[in-house]
Amino acid sequence: MDFQDYFELTQLYADYASAVSSGQWELWPEFFTEECSYRLQPRENYDRGFPLATLSFESKGMLKDRVYGIRETLFHDPYYQRHVVGAPVVRKAEGERFECEANYAVFRTKLSELSSVFNVGRYIDVVVRTPEGLKFSSRQVIYDSEMIPNSIIYPI
């Protein structure tokens, strides 16, 4: 992996964090390939090889459906999220395909309340080069705590 590839990869991670922190949910699916996988899973299940996930989407179309649900059908107390993402560690690079990991922390701020730590864990990703630039073909969001507040509405 050369410097340009790593720069583009870190830009992908930074742009993703900015998009999902901004509340512009329609941007979220555009970080993925058409045939993609996005799974949100507790660490215990991941470490033990259990398939049960909190959220699991298997295509960009499913991600777009989730955005529609967030915007049009889900009712919840509004809150803001702020994502802090560490630099990606490249575990394997083969041509135009990169296997990466990065730690993350998500802070949540409800209206008229103090900010709190909402979710902490790591991303385990497969990133591929497309004509539009680098995209996630697989994103596993492995959160550390077995306890999550109420439900997860927005993308992590």
Score class of each variant (00 low, 15 high):
H83R: 06
Y68A: 01
V127K: 00
C100S: 11
R97H: 06
K60G: 10
E113S: 15
K110V: 02
S37D: 02
D125G: 02
E132G: 04
E99P: 00
G69V: 03
L74D: 07
F136C: 00
F107R: 05
E146K: 07
R108G: 12
G95M: 07
M147T: 04
V106N: 03
V90E: 02
C100R: 01
P42Y: 11
T54Y: 08
D65Y: 01
L74G: 01
A93T: 08
S37R: 13
F75V: 09
R139V: 00
S137M: 11
R48K: 13
R71M: 05
D144W: 09
A93L: 06
R91Q: 13
F136T: 00
F118M: 11
P78L: 08
N119F: 03
F50R: 06
V67N: 05
Y123K: 02
M62E: 13
C100K: 01
F118H: 12
R129C: 01
R139G: 00
K64T: 13
D47Y: 05
G121L: 04
E94F: 08
Y80H: 12
G69S: 15
V126R: 05
P51M: 07
I142N: 01
G49P: 02
G61F: 06
E101R: 13
P51K: 14
L52F: 10
E146L: 09
A87D: 10
L52D: 07
G49H: 07
V67Q: 04
S116T: 15
Y123C: 06
R71A: 12
E132R: 14
M62I: 03
L52T: 12
F75R: 08
A105K: 05
T73Q: 03
N103P: 04
K135H: 09
P51H: 10
K92T: 08
R43A: 03
R108L: 11
S59G: 06
F118C: 06
